[in-house]
């Protein structure tokens, strides 16, 4: 399980996503954006606290931003990250900060002929949970209590 999370982390913590940039960003843009995000995080601005990725939002920390900047400064490493960041995060429902909107809007114009890969965000997790009651194979969480293997309430 730990390794699965790590694998997702590779995509989620991709420096480009952390910085809210696309692989085409210049070196100076990387520095500027990083510097700005570090400042925003220092000021504890909520808008800087999360970022969008194709595998769900990530939590942005100064540490991650610094590491992202360092990774992108090294051309060899940057090339690898560019490959992993091929997916443009679809941030339709994510509240966007004014700063990155400029970049993504620019990108959006460029990528006009983009095709959608899979029906995105069709099944929100909440919706799925609502239907869970109908799923015959859903767990029976109270089984242990019901069958006398645990008392109902905890004495904590």
């Amino acid at each position: 399980m730990g390794r699965g999370d790590e694998a997702l982390g590779r995509i989620r913590d991709n420096p480009f996503y952390v910085l809210g940039l696309r692989p085409a960003a210049t070196r100076m843009e990387v520095e500027r954006e990083g510097q700005k995000l570090l400042g925003m995080l220092e000021l504890k601005l909520k808008s800087a606290g999360t970022y969008a990725t194709p595998v769900g939002p990530g939590e942005r920390t100064p540490d991650k931003v610094r590491r992202a900047m360092a990774e992108l400064r090294d051309p060899e490493k940057r090339l690898g990250h560019e490959l992993w960041a091929r997916l443009t995060p679809d941030s339709g429902e994510e509240p966007e900060r004014s700063g990155t909107r400029r970049v993504t809007a620019l990108e959006a114009a460029e990528l006009a002929e983009e095709a959608e890969l899979e029906a995105m965000a069709a099944e929100a997790a909440a919706e799925a949970r609502a239907r869970e009651g109908e799923n015959p194979l859903a767990p029976w969480p109270e089984a242990l209590q019901a069958l006398g293997w645990a008392a109902g309430r905890s004495a904590r």
């Binding site: 990725t53 194709p54 595998v55 769900g56 443009t88 995060p89 995105m120 965000a121 799925a128 109908e134």
Partner: peptide, 15 residues
């Protein structure tokens, strides 16, 4: 009986 629970989807676009 309802359908299986759907897994979260990739929310990204690719050229």
């Amino acid at each position: 009986r309802g359908p299986q629970v759907e897994a979260p989807k990739v929310r990204g676009v690719v050229r």
